[in-house]
Design a protein around this nucleic acid. Sequence first.
DNA 1: CTGTTAGCGCGTTCAG
DNA 2: CTGAACGCGCTAACAG
Lengths: 345, 345
Amino acid sequence: MKQKITLKKIAKEFGVSISTVSKALKDSHEISLELKQKIQAFAKYYHYKPNSLALNLRNQKTKTIGIIIPEIVHHFFTKVITGIEKLAIEKGYNVMICLSNESYEKEVLNIETLANGIVDGIIISVAKETEEKENYEHFTELINSGIPLVMFDRVVDEINCSKVIADDKGGAFLATDHLIKNGCNRVALITTPDYVTVGKERREGYISALTSNKLVIDENLILKIDDKQDIEEQLNRLLIDGNPPDGVFAVNEIYAATFMKVARKFGYNVPDDIEVIGFTDGLISEFTIPSLTTVAQHGRSMGQKALELLMDEIDSQEADYQHKNALIKTDLKIRNSTKKVQFQN
Amino acid sequence: MKQKITLKKIAKEFGVSISTVSKALKDSHEISLELKQKIQAFAKYYHYKPNSLALNLRNQKTKTIGIIIPEIVHHFFTKVITGIEKLAIEKGYNVMICLSNESYEKEVLNIETLANGIVDGIIISVAKETEEKENYEHFTELINSGIPLVMFDRVVDEINCSKVIADDKGGAFLATDHLIKNGCNRVALITTPDYVTVGKERREGYISALTSNKLVIDENLILKIDDKQDIEEQLNRLLIDGNPPDGVFAVNEIYAATFMKVARKFGYNVPDDIEVIGFTDGLISEFTIPSLTTVAQHGRSMGQKALELLMDEIDSQEADYQHKNALIKTDLKIRNSTKKVQFQN
DNA sequence: CTGTTAGCGCGTTCAG
DNA sequence: CTGAACGCGCTAACAG
């Protein structure tokens, strides 16, 4: 168990002081060439590396940024992380990922530990439970303590920090509008409970598309899924009364793919009887039959943008930093769960 | 921008020394009850928290463990992480995730930074490129420097550390045997290039199942996929000559799902013409049509086991720690890409 | 050219 | 009951 090599040990080895070694290793002009070379060679041989703990303590910064996400088993979040990570490395930062598991308490805990001197900034997508409780003190405290915070995807308006979100509303509009243009006039929405912010946005896009196409909003066609219950069963309701929708927009991939399964069970054909679009950046869409038309979220871009904003704030340490918001464009990825025929009439 | 509260500041506030405050906060009997109460109340009010950097520096440990994985956009790895994380939190450890992106260089870099005093131990699944290069110095150095290392899934035999792997061979045997028992006698294997260790294991299981069923190994039925090229095109080869396999075992979900797509394009029906099994712990399998029969890997259990072994090594700081290996059972998750009729003859 | 000192924040002796 | 001193590893200002 080889011990770590430190300045102190090198100093002892050469019978010089610690600071001499430190300077020698930084190639300071104050040190004689001969001594420098010897020390540098020695250090290299033993793979000397400054202890980052000590450095961090001294510099009061850590060159690592923290990411808090609700769930890692989720393709969208992993994409975002990939985006963050890539850029972070380029900028010489390390990345630390924490999971809140959608729990308020764990989110608070994560923030507390991260804030405790181990990261220079935090990127977060807030937990469902936090959105539900509307309890945001931990965010304000974090910000007050001087640690930059950037929110992405699931953001909270009340908090004054930089934010990056996908154009949820626009994407939902795009999808719904596409269905209508394809000839659907009974377009259903499969969504989350109200407290989930992205769900709300997507719902607004859906409604706006309906109204702008002069269709009425039929509450019977709006289904809010409770994740804690069986999803298939809840989806049945849309089909069981023999008066099915002819188009379906689901706010995520799982809902969309599961709906297709259920529809098939009821004997409906997708896309001939019912066209389906999902909102997602997932893996499943390509492998369902028919493959699923989706609203692409561009998770990687979101991650990159989030890191950019965070860096911007970290670098410009002005007390009155002006927080920025970014909207990541979404677009339709047409696959086979919708008909190709547009503008048919 | 509220400054962080430290022992020093509290001490100044009360006109006492730093160590007095420190003791007061730990409820030491050396401090008068009155003073203790005042200080504790004050600290609580200002959310005093010991700076972990300083603590780590002092204690020479960090209570965080590092995870290095090749790719995060991969359901199996996220499952493993979930498993690690859950147990880690319980044990009071934090988790830091780094991505190697399958690159040798990034893996080395990750290890170097993590080893540099920021983690107490590392759990890794090695990058493909590292396996290819067979360059393992960074691992031996890490171990020599006294930081416990545990490998999972993609492990390297030559390195003396604890390891946890899925029973790849057994799972492959199970799958292949199942196909044969179902009546297949031309079972194909879709696998990775040779240097990927898990691929090799699974291949062995496949071959062992064939021989134990007295079937000959037909190299034409073994297809090694190069991920850098178009997968569908490579899969065509299995079907293009009009003499297709009647069973297919793929070493991962993507290969399996993609094969089903290709087979369908060639007019073959799964499972009637060709039965398919994939090795995986993924999301896609449930949503393909037909849903995919798989060998379940139990990623979460692997993660948990890996952390257990790591903790075991960290706790027992004996110089001659005896490294342990764990084999995580795999089992068949029967879905609809295989026929239900077993023992038919 | 080299060494001393101080300080980052903390906990632990050891003296008083 | 309280405080001074030390050490974790490092750097920077200041002496010599």
